[in-house]
C-alpha cells in the first residue's frame, strides 16, 4: 500500500470558542490519491483546508505530513503546495503572469526560466505569459495559480475551490489538468469545492462536511441520502455511482457527531447509523 502523505487526526476548530465549525474530523490521503471535500457554505470546508495548510491552528487534533506531525512553530510548508482562490489575489498590483511565476524564485532559487515556461505550457497558459493577471479570465487565473504551485514539484497539492466562478468547460479543463498532474507525478490532491458532480467524478475519496456532520470514505460508498443529509436538501441530478450498494449497504441516512471513516471497507459492509429520531 502506498504511504500516507497527509493525515488529519480528530481536528476540532471553533472561531468563537463556543460554536464548533469542525469537530473531530479525521481523514487520510495516500500518494497519488485524491480527496474531495464537499459541503454547504459554512460547513467548515475552507476552515479545514486552512488548518491543513497552517493558516489556522486547530483547537485540538493533529495534522501529519509523510507521517510526521506538523509542528505549529516550524510548519512543514515544503511538504505541499497550496492553491488559494483566485479571488484572494490583490488586484491593486499590476502583476504579469511571468512576474507572478518569478515570485516563486524568491523561495525556490534553482528554478529556471525554462522550467517555469514548461509549467505554464502544462496548464495551457504560456501564450499569456506577458499578460497582466488582472486581464485574464477566472479559469486562466486559476491555471496561473496552479502553475505557480507546481514550481516545487509537490507530492501533495491542496486546492481551495478551484472551479469557483468557472463555466463547465473551464471546470473540465482545470480538473483535467489536475488529473494529468496527478497521474504523471503521483501527486496526492485535496480539493475543496462546491461542484458535487465534478468532485465525485475526479476524486477517489470524499469528505462531506457540515459542522458536526461528516462522512469520509471512498467515492463509491457515497449515497444520495448522505449528500442530502449534509446539504439539508434534495438533489435531482447527481452522478453517484450506486452499484452494489443495494447488496452491501443500507440506504438509511447517515447521522453522526463523530468521524468514523474507514469503519467500512470494500470487504465488509459500511456500518451506517440510523437517523436519530
Amino acid at each position: 500500500m502506498s504511504k500516507s502523505v497527509l493525515r488529519a487526526e480528530k481536528i476540532s476548530f471553533s472561531y468563537d470558542g463556543i460554536t464548533p465549525t469542525l469537530k473531530d474530523v479525521s481523514f487520510d490521503l495516500h500518494e497519488g490519491e485524491s480527496l474531495g471535500v464537499l459541503g454547504p457554505n459554512g460547513g467548515g470546508k475552507t476552515t479545514l483546508m486552512k488548518i491543513v495548510v497552517g493558516l489556522l491552528s486547530p483547537q485540538s487534533g493533529s495534522i501529519f505530513f509523510d507521517e510526521q506531525k506538523a509542528d505549529k512553530r516550524h510548519y512543514p510548508y515544503h511538504s505541499f503546495s497550496y492553491v488559494p482562490q483566485h479571488s484572494e489575489l490583490n488586484s491593486i498590483l499590476p502583476v504579469k503572469v511571468s512576474e507572478y511565476m518569478g515570485f516563486a524564485k524568491a523561495i525556490y532559487k534553482n528554478i529556471t526560466e525554462k522550467e517555469m515556461d514548461e509549467l505554464l505550457e502544462l496548464v495551457g497558459i504560456l501564450h499569456k505569459k506577458e499578460s497582466l493577471i488582472s486581464s485574464l479570465s477566472g479559469g486562466e487565473k486559476q491555471r496561473v495559480l496552479l502553475a505557480r504551485a507546481l514550481v516545487n514539484h509537490p507530492k501533495l497539492l491542496l486546492l481551495d475551490e478551484p472551479t469557483k466562478g468557472l463555466d463547465s468547460s473551464g471546470q473540465d479543463q482545470l480538473l483535467s489538468i489536475i488529473e494529468k498532474i496527478k497521474q504523471r507525478d503521483k501527486t496526492a490532491v485535496m480539493i475543496v469545492d462546491h461542484n458535487i458532480n465534478q468532485i465525485i467524478r475526479h476524486c477517489h475519496k470524499i469528505l462531506c462536511l457540515n459542522r458536526n456532520f461528516h462522512w469520509h470514505d471512498h467515492t463509491d460508498l457515497l449515497t444520495k441520502n448522505i449528500l442530502e443529509d449534509v446539504y439539508h436538501c434534495e438533489f435531482e441530478h447527481l452522478l453517484i455511482h450506486e452499484k452494489d450498494l443495494q447488496s452491501s449497504h443500507s440506504h438509511d441516512h447517515h447521522f453522526c457527531d463523530h468521524d468514523h471513516a474507514h469503519q467500512g471497507t470494500s470487504n465488509e459492509p459500511h456500518s451506517f447509523l440510523r437517523r436519530k429520531k
Binding site: V53, Y77, Y82, V83, Y100, F103, R148, A149
Partner: peptide, 8 residues
Amino acid sequence: YDEEGAIT
C-alpha cells in the same frame, strides 16, 4: 499580491 500563497 497573494498573501496566503506566500505564507504557505
